[in-house]
Design a protein around this nucleic acid. Structure first.
Lengths: 192, 192
DNA sequence: CTCGATTGTCTAGCGGTGCTAGGATCGAGT
DNA sequence: ACTCGATCCTAGCACCGCTAGACAATCGAG
């Protein structure tokens, strides 16, 4: 069985390579530059090999998105756990979120803008996505205010962050107001 | 000169036809279905004719976006002018914005998600875009609160609406909470 | 040890994309 | 009536996502 195991290992390794290469290429040159041909060339295999790992390009984007969701949840938890008090945690969360989006624009795009074929807000939502939302909820639930469901509040806060992230990336907001936008958002939305 | 004038008129008419057809096709079958070939076939001209009006597909998307911006500003102004009091106006604005996004998903996508090659938040921003932002500002400036610049407040409120619009369209939020999200947003962000 | 079956990978190609060069056609002005 | 510029189309380029089918390597059975 050892031979088979080795093959499986190598196969899994190659799959990681595909996802990592797609991500790297997307971050460096944008998702438009991530073509199956280029991707195949980078991993030094022929095009059809990609299709033995993924159904198609969408699924590769989806894999990058899932990876991103895990990292994002991590980033958010790390930032919030280092802050004292609900309000500081909410601020830290907002910054961590926007920082992640700014530092990993292609991953963020894969997660929320491009259709990676992922389900959201449903039972069959992949675990990493659920967990990323959970990471937001852990901190934001504290500042939802009386009589407001944490889930509802988190959706609204998240939507606001998402709006800021995408409009900022698309250069539709004034750059110099970035910090004050976050302050205002947390000030108004979070209770205490 | 009458012949030339007629030709110019016909040319302008054909340009409107291109934009209208692109928009219609995008709303019915999504932007992916808007290919230069299909578009050319619909307007009953050959492909290269498109390029005598626009530099490329991006510019056609941009034209649809500009048209959308004008309509959106109109929709927002109509809704807000029919409401009594700052708070009701803010609520009406939010609903009008989200309604527009929901009813014209392809146009909304052209405006903010797809790159139509348009400049935002700069001097060379096209007038319709500036005006659409102005339409938001007129109403939202009233509820920015003391010491908060109307422009800053509008950016934040707008970002929140944009987040809700895009995450809703992408089915990343619970549909049954839609109304309460708007209520919560206006309640918290708007000052009286 | 041999030989068929299975697995893995590649080459080649299909139908589509955005975009453009170059030739045909048409009509306005002399 | 003829020229010549404007207008439009055919044909084609390079690229896209994706796949069929050939080929080689590897495995298991006799």
């Amino acid at each position: 069985m050892s031979v088979q195991e080795r093959k499986q290992r190598e196969r899994a390794e190659r799959e990681r390579l595909i996802v990592a290469t797609a991500r790297e290429l997307a971050e460096k040159q944008g998702w438009d530059a991530v073509t199956t041909r280029r991707l195949a060339e980078r991993i030094e295999y022929s095009q059809p090999v990609l299709y033995s790992h993924f159904r198609g390009k969408r699924e590769i984007i989806g894999a990058v998105a899932l990876e991103g969701a895990t990292e994002m949840a991590q980033a958010v938890r790390a930032a919030t756990s280092a802050a004292d008090g609900p309000r500081a945690r909410a601020t830290a969360l907002a910054h961590a979120y926007l920082d992640f989006a700014e530092r990993n624009p292609a991953v963020y795009e894969a997660l929320f803008d491009l259709d990676g074929g992922l389900a959201f807000a449903r039972e069959d939502t992949p675990a990493p996505l659920k967990d990323a939302f959970a990471a937001l909820l852990e901190t934001l639930g504290e500042v939802a205010g009386d009589g407001v469901e944490p889930g509802l509040f988190t959706e609204v806060f998240w939507a606001a962050l998402h709006g800021l992230a995408t409009l900022t990336r698309a250069q539709r907001l004034l750059p110099e107001l970035a910090e004050r936008r976050v302050e205002l958002l947390v000030d108004r939305l979070a209770v205490i």
